[in-house]
Design a protein around this nucleic acid. Structure first.
Lengths: 143, 143
DNA sequence: TCTTGAACCTCTAGTGACTAGAGGAATTAT
DNA sequence: ATAATTCCTCTAGTCACTAGAGGTTCAAGA
């Protein structure tokens, strides 16, 4: 049994974040010492590792909660877990595509400007003010 | 002179968002009617178009505020505006790179799973639980 | 001119996933 | 025994909005 600080060191997840995960139900409330401090074991270490890895991959807390529910029902079809991962993949791909459009336009904007003039004639500012200068549409980056 | 709703229609920026921009200082407080309703002119329309375009490109409110300050001092060097845009480009590129790593791993994870079995043997869940299965490091996606 | 209904106003609170800080208690090391 | 560190809870802040309550003003038609 180890403290929240040790768990934090083992997993790289910050202490307040661990408490936040407990609060939101991603982690079960652990045992406590007589003095009310949290004490964790191997099971929590593994689950937090799972959560951390999924977060690193950009899964939402909500999606991770769903994955954990699936883990707790090992008889359920694997398809549901795969579906969540595939949805995440689609989300990541869509985001990449959007960002690549933004990259293209930012390159265009920054290339057009020597950086030597004064703001009055600045191509960056002109481009931002005049969407008509864009070559293509770019969707809003929803983060 | 036109209302906030008209401005919203012209720019595609939602009414509450326009008020939010005013509150945060991105937009100046406009004239009001006797009945306290906002009335806008061409200048505000243009500035909001500028803001919208910059937001679409992923610039932060803070960065946009800086760009607007530069616009208001046309004698300042264009370099500052270009620097902001270049920083944004770097940010976008870093994000793309991270997301591509995530994409690779998500493909690996989802390809490894037939979707036919039960969760107990699910490769998706196993992969998420065991970071050691990853081929490469992937940084946390900071959004 | 009056009425109706749409659009407007302010204010507060909620979103996601944390992070920061206050003020105090428990644990660990010396 | 004492000092340093870690832990506890609770509240509030972050970013860029979005939603809703409860009330007021405006514009168009009768």
């Amino acid at each position: 049994m180890f403290s929240i600080g040790t768990l934090s060191n083992q997993t790289g997840v910050k202490v307040p974040t661990i408490r936040y995960y407990e609060q939101t139900g991603l982690l079960d409330a652990p045992e406590r010492t007589e003095g009310n401090q949290r004490r964790y074991g191997k099971a929590e270490l593994e689950r937090l590792g799972f959560i951390r890895h999924a977060r690193d991959l950009g899964f939402s807390i909500e999606a991770i909660a769903a994955l954990i529910r699936l883990q707790n029902h090992p008889d359920r079809s694997c398809k549901e877990a795969t579906d969540i991962a595939i949805a995440q993949l689609g989300y990541v791909r869509a985001k990449i595509e959007r960002l690549q459009k933004l990259e293209t336009e930012l390159v265009r904007i920054t290339d057009g400007c020597s950086g030597l003039g004064v703001t009055e004639d600045c191509y960056v500012l002109a481009s931002l003010g005049n969407h008509g200068l864009c070559e293509a549409d770019h969707d809003r980056e929803t983060r």
